[in-house]
Structure formats: C-alpha cells, structure tokens
Computed example of a mutant assay.
Amino acid sequence: MRIVADAVKVTVPATSANLGPGFDALGLALDWHDELTVYALGNSDVTVDIDGEGADEVPRDASHLVAATIRRALDHVGASQTGLRLVARNTIPHGRGLGSSAAAVVAGLFAARGFISDPEALSDDVILNLATQIEGHPDNAAPAILGGATTAWMTAHDQPCAAQLRLHADLQPTVIVPTTRLSTHRARGVLPPAVAHANAAFNVGRSALLVHAMAENPDLLFDATEDKLHQEFRSGVMPRSWELIRALRRRGLAAVVSGAGPTVLVLHTKNATHVVSDHITEALEEITEGHSDQWLVRSPHIDYTGARVERITP
C-alpha cells in the first residue's frame, strides 16, 4: 500500500452515547466538530499543533492519540510509515462524555484513509473494528463514523457492527456541559458487576421504545429515556449532573447522562426548544444556587454525515 497524498483534512463530530437505557449500544452524532489537518513529512518527525480543547494537556509527539492511531492504521494496511505534522482545532470538550477520545481515534483512522492509495482498505467496517480495539467499545465510534443515530453491537466472534437508525425530522438534542470533568474509567469503575434480571428487562424494553420514539413518536421520549442499568450507580461520581437530571425530569424533560458523563443530554422536539431552554434555566438555578454560569448549554443539530476526509494541497 502506498501513501499518495501529501496532506489531508479531517472533520469528526462529537457524540453522545447510551442515550439513557441504550448502555454501550446507542449513540448520536452532534454538529459539534474537531478539525484536523495532517501533513505527511519526508522525515520521521511527528509534531502536533493544537488550538482549543486540550491544547495545554495532550502530548505533542508521536504518543498523541491521533498520531498513534494514524501509525496503527498505516501498519494495518501495510503502508510505509511517514513523518507527520498534525494541526488540530479542537472544540469538543474533553472528559465530559461527548466522545472526545473516540473523535480523536476516528480522526486518525480517517486521516490514514485519506493518505493511502486504496481508501477502501480502511472501509467504515474496518475503521469501526480498529476504533473498537483502541476504545474498547463501539458506542461512540459508530455515530462518529456513520453520523446520525446508531446502534452498535459485538458479534459472537467479537466483531463490532453498527447500523444507522431512522430519526424523526423534529428530533433535537440539547447538551448541558459542566466545567468539571470525569474520566470514562472512573465512571465505569462504579458500575456493579451484575444487575437484577428485572432491571435488565426494564432497559431492554426502554431501549426498544427509545428507537421507536426517536424515529416515529418523540412524545414518548420521556418514558423511553428511563434507565436502571448505569446512571444512578454513577450519581456518586457526578452528583451535580445527577441532581440536574432529576430536576429536569421533574419538569417533564427527557434528560439523561451523556456517555459516561458528566454532561447532561436532553432529547426533545425542535418546536419545544424555547420551552426546554426555560426549563433548563430554571433547573440550573435550582441546583447551582446562582452559579449556572459554570454550565454551557448548547443545542447542536444532529450530524447526519459523520467523519469526513479530503485530500488537500499543502
């Protein structure tokens, strides 16, 4: 496999996983993106320039997640390694449950696809498989790759698969992002090793209802986003987020933890955005005692495209 491009540009969306009951399965791509330009160099150097989220925190050498992922993808297809210069504009918040690490991994895999002579060697299926190997589960990677809403699963042979879900034209997400962070490792660490059969059955029913509600009947979103598998177990490591979810649900909003948290996701209809905004303001005032400015409220559109890569002239 040959590298045939000198530079590529990648755009990858933020994602929200779980959506309440769909633990490790359901995900949604948001119109909130990281952008990355990658240059192939004639030497072995790797440099990283970052503007925005993580600029002062992530490594600037070959250990950077995007750079390491590009090299892994090139190895996978048998392409020669090359030096890299990465120029990133990051807007997806880190450590907030919006899929920033999955976005970095998918960005690296799409960058490698853009560089090689046969892009189909890194098809969506291959990229999902590699991303799952790196991430550990496909719930964020799937919507980042495919766009829209997705359901992801592992086959009997431990191969990740994903399918896009049909969405109602009026469906609208709103995210409420705190300044505090929470690692996925810590959020998963508080989950019990086993759950009651009744709770598992409850979530199976709610997950099926959520797929229907998002596609056909958003009036059912409140009931469809109930969960008994993971959210309350995580309340101790994100108490303010859990308090906010309870305050929002008391007001009739379909509020859930976004991914591993601590961001809160509300699913609603576009024509209810103003009412939802008012309820969010009330709930934040209730739980923050005048410090609601520590939360960012944003209503991005759904990203129906997923990650994109294009070859560019440096």
Rank of each mutant, 00 (worst) to 15 (best):
L248A: 07
T184M: 07
T180F: 13
A247M: 09
Q231G: 04
L221H: 13
H268A: 15
N203V: 03
L267R: 03
V190T: 11
E243W: 00
V204K: 05
P239Q: 12
A260E: 01
S183I: 01
V237G: 02
D227W: 12
L182W: 11
T225A: 04
P192S: 13
L244E: 09
T174E: 02
T184D: 08
L220G: 03
I245A: 09
T180G: 14
S235E: 07
P218Y: 00
T179A: 13
T269Y: 01
H212A: 14
A255S: 12
I245Q: 07
D219E: 14
L220K: 12
K270H: 04
R188Q: 09
A215N: 14
P173R: 01
P262R: 08
I245N: 06
P262A: 08
R188N: 11
A260N: 03
G252P: 15
A254C: 09
P218N: 10
A247P: 15
R249S: 11
A247N: 09
L248H: 03
T263Q: 11
E243N: 14
T179I: 12
F233S: 14
H230Y: 01
L253M: 10
L209H: 13
A194T: 14
N203C: 13
A208N: 11
M238F: 11
V264Q: 11
E232F: 08
P173V: 03
P173C: 08
W242M: 10
R186Y: 02
V177F: 01
W242P: 01
D227M: 04
R250E: 14
H185A: 13
N217W: 00
R188F: 05
V195W: 02
D219S: 15
T174W: 00
G205F: 06
R251N: 10
A198W: 00
L210R: 05
A198L: 04
L267N: 01
G236D: 10
T174P: 04
A213I: 00
V177C: 13
A201M: 15
K228C: 05
G236M: 07
T269M: 03
N217Q: 08
R251V: 05
P193E: 15
L171V: 05
V237E: 02
D223K: 03
L253S: 10
V256S: 04
S207V: 06
D223W: 11
V266A: 06
N217C: 07
H212E: 11
L267I: 06
L248W: 02
A247L: 11
